[in-house]
């Protein structure tokens, strides 16, 4: 394991660079086409196309992609700090907001899981 550490970091950085470049190219493309989608989504579509035509193997970017997704929380923490400006909102509406989130989350989970389960059971019965 130790021996691979020395080239693991440059490798990770190169993969991250590739993902940032795809993001940048996606942004340029979206601006040029005038499509109302985020640059990242276009970058993702480009990367999927590169996989599909075989120009890239997912394994080539797995480390960089895995690292970015694993650290995602770090990248949205700054947005959470907007709470600093919403102190009075949270004091006046905070519990109602939490109630909405809690009830709605329960509803979403039950609806999603039961839908998938029913469709799965239905298709299993019809395959058999």
């Amino acid at each position: 394991m130790k021996a691979t550490v020395s080239n693991a970091l440059p490798r990770l950085l190169a993969e991250l660079c590739a993902l940032f470049v795809l993001y940048f190219v996606g942004g340029q493309l979206v601006a040029w086409l005038g499509w109302p989608i985020p640059a990242g989504v276009m970058g993702m579509a480009l990367l999927l196309m590169l996989f599909a035509v075989g120009a890239l193997k997912p394994g080539t970017l797995q480390r960089g992609a895995g690292w970015l997704m694993a650290q995602m929380l770090l990248f949205f923490i700054p947005a959470l700090m907007s709470l600093l400006d919403y102190g009075s909102l949270m004091r006046s509406e905070g519990w109602r907001i939490l109630l909405v989130i809690a009830l709605s989350t329960l509803v979403v989970m039950v609806v999603t899981a039961l839908t998938v389960e029913l469709v799965c059971r239905w298709s299993l019965r019809h395959e058999a």
Partner: peptide, 21 residues
């Protein structure tokens, strides 16, 4: 710290890997 939020863009690009796999 705001630039950190910008990295969520490249995270979106990275989502292509689990979709493909």
């Amino acid at each position: 710290t705001h630039w950190l939020i910008g990295v969520l863009g490249p995270v979106t690009v990275a989502f292509a890997v689990p979709i493909w796999q």
